[in-house]
Design a protein around this nucleic acid. Structure first.
Length: 257
DNA sequence: ATGGTTGCAGGGCAA
């Protein structure tokens, strides 16, 4: 089973990129973030023609998450809100595929350490952490993936000194991510030897991609039952090289199931 | 400290 996460920064603009990547990479499950589409405009038919079922939770202009899959999601167990956390922003989506629970997250960016958005990010992460804990008690095989807007440690940052305690890299954010993982989620990327300086996001500005100035903030986390069966994990930067790309590249994990 | 680039939407806002 091949599972991927991709922040597409508008599925309206990036639908051709998604279709081309799916045709090439053949993921079984693809979690999307920043679809920026209301549900009425979600391209269900175009994706169905490409062989993918869709579940999605969108809003106008901002945010929006979706999960594409070869096999349909179970009819029950689709969750689009963090339990007990009132939030109009469409950032979470959970669905069950066979015996695998998939939780797609578009973590709050946070803008700047100390800002209102930063406080919202930490509160949001605390609420998600409680929810994920409950999901892991209910399911043995859990995948939590998405745009985490947190670089787990300095290996995931092109210039750790410049980013020291900055947004996406601050200690409270990293501690919050560690707490989310504490019930037994592994960053699948780190289960394997990796090329150093692997990133999944590069700012559109300042020629960051050409200059290899990126961060690895897109993650596929897996519970132990799945981590034990993980056979590969990597980032595919090819889509970032294309015309009119998303600023993120897909993060992928493969499992022998 | 600011600016740079993209998307949405048609002016800023979010990233």
């Amino acid at each position: 089973m091949k599972v991927a996460s991709w922040n597409v920064n508008s599925l309206n603009v990036r639908l051709p990129h998604v279709l081309a990547w799916c045709a090439d990479a053949q993921p079984d499950i693809l979690a999307l973030q920043e679809t920026k589409l209301v549900d009425e405009k979600f391209p269900v038919e175009a994706l169905a023609e490409a062989g993918y079922h869709s579940v999605y939770s969108g809003q106008p202009t901002y945010n929006g998450v979706a999960i594409l899959s070869r096999e349909p999601a179970s009819a029950d167990g689709i969750i689009m809100d963090i339990p007990g956390f009132d939030d109009p922003q469409r950032r979470v989506l959970a669905a069950t595929y066979g015996d695998v629970r998939v939780i797609d997250l578009y973590v709050v960016n946070g803008k700047e350490v100390g800002s209102d958005k930063y406080e919202y990010k930490l509160a949001w992460l605390a609420a998600v952490t409680e929810w994920v804990r409950a999901e892991m008690q209910a399911h043995e095989k859990v995948i939590v993936l998405g745009d985490f807007n947190i670089a787990p440690d300095d290996r995931d940052v092109h210039d750790p000194e410049a980013w020291h305690e900055q947004i996406l890299c601050s200690t409270p954010e990293r501690d919050a991510l560690a707490k989310l993982c504490a019930p037994g989620l592994a960053d699948t990327f780190r289960l394997f030897e990796q090329e150093e300086r692997t990133w999944s996001w590069w700012d559109y500005r300042m020629n960051a991609f050409r200059r290899k100035m990126g961060l690895r903030i897109d993650l596929v986390l897996a519970s132990k039952a799945l981590a034990d069966r993980c056979t590969a994990a990597y980032v595919d930067i090819e889509p970032r090289r294309q015309e009119r790309p998303s600023d993120h590249a897909p993060a992928i994990a493969e499992f022998s199931l």
